[in-house]
Write a protein that binds this DNA or RNA. Structure first.
Lengths: 228, 228
DNA sequence: TAAAGCAGGATTGTTGACAATCTGATCCCG
DNA sequence: CGGGATCAGATTGTCAACAATCCTGCTTTA
């Protein structure tokens, strides 16, 4: 996994992040071909570094690597999408349970502060921030629950969920606001384990239900234009 | 993730597998330094390929990569070890539950056949096969439960467990035989969800309890000698 | 004497060029 | 006119040499 060096993000990470953003914000649509040389030129780095960034993105399920063919933005199938949500429910339910078991007031406050940030971003209509913060909420739960390993797995799952959302959620549909997150936090604050788990399950189920099977059919756009 | 191409394993995978085996069979002890050039010479491949294999091993938690310093066989802490077992319990419990829900007779038969293989390997005292099959049992459950994503996560967890076992299980201690696996299978065959989940939890807990905190303190051995 | 400074050697990180492979269009033949 | 072989162009995969970095042991100096 990519190390999260707090101060200095490695060059590979930087490319990883920029591509991640472009995909999650729906600017790079599923199926788009990612040519190594092209990316190397755009980001002004060597091809080798692009390669390692693409390898990392493949590990997180955002990119599909075909031998001798190249890299493409992944196109998760409906079946895979449902599997991702199953995995999320499995893991997040347990994390909520564990968090309830020993939730400090500090933890509750961090959760509340995060939801407030989400609300602010939603009101600004800052899509990029909203997507990032929405995923961040779930990661925060994993962090506070105290399982570094499941935190990493969930980070992966959240990335994949972003891609799935970009692919299957109708463009008109508004992202789920911070209301359900707030609900989950309040249940955790009460210390009601079962209610909190149900709230999380319901939340994930709600996101899953918003998906539809019709794929977007806009024309392709040029990499150079999207990645500024 | 490494693609599991059924017929032709890629060269990178081949190196990955050989190092994995060496670590899981306790020939390469935690903390051992893995020099790129040395490995390249031993495996008769280029350094670039060793690099990508080491990157894959780091992703699976078997190797620690230090910038400008090199690669070392990972040394999971006690805390990390316990976290791995927590993650396994979380995931495998759910997988067993799901498998019980729709366990075909074909699935049961595959499980029984696998346990039989395990028993045969144990009687041959074939340690390498025993380690591989023991992990394979858990992976088979994930496969039969029908969650490709959690299968991949569990593959990772099993690798890490091998390393933890190599590091913290006293050498005298015999590996858990196939008895507990057989117990789990029988509970699944009965369709008793709760009993099956309990059996799995107990099995994992049993493995975890066998760990001790004293590290092995044998002298280092030479890479060339171990990797034949 | 001990600690800081300074090469020397070894190891990793990076780059650019070369080889292998695939795609797509053209051309030939039935 | 249609189908299959063939060749050019483009793209990925691999490699070997070069640059940057780090550890080790020695030297110097207070």
């Amino acid at each position: 996994m990519l190390k999260s060096k707090s101060n200095a993000p490695s060059p590979t990470e930087a490319i990883y992040e920029r591509l991640w953003d472009a995909i999650a914000e729906r600017n790079l649509r599923p199926g788009t071909r990612l040519k190594e040389e092209q990316l190397a030129e755009i980001f002004a780095v060597s091809r080798a570094r692009v390669r390692s960034a693409l390898a990392a993105l493949e590990r997180d399920g955002l990119v599909r690597l075909v031998p001798n063919r190249g890299a493409f933005v992944a196109e998760p199938t409906i079946r895979e999408a449902r599997d991702i949500f199953f995995a999320r429910a499995t893991i997040e339910s347990k994390l909520v349970e564990r968090l309830c078991a020993h939730a400090s007031t500090g933890a509750i406050n961090r959760l509340k502060a995060h939801v407030a940030e989400e609300r602010a971003a939603a009101e600004r209509c800052d899509r990029a921030a909203a997507v990032r913060l929405s995923g961040g909420f779930h990661l925060l739960i994993a962090e506070l629950a105290g399982s570094p390993y499941l935190f990493e797995v969930l980070r992966d799952l959240v990335s994949r969920t972003s891609l799935i959302t970009a692919m299957y959620q109708p463009r008109g549909e508004k992202d789920c606001g911070p209301d359900e997150h707030e609900d989950i936090v309040s249940k955790i604050a009460c210390g009601d384990v079962e209610a909190a788990k149900l709230a999380m399950d319901h939340h994930l189920d709600h996101i899953e239900r918003q998906l539809n099977l019709a794929q977007s059919d806009e024309g392709p756009r040029h990499l150079r234009e999207i990645l500024s």
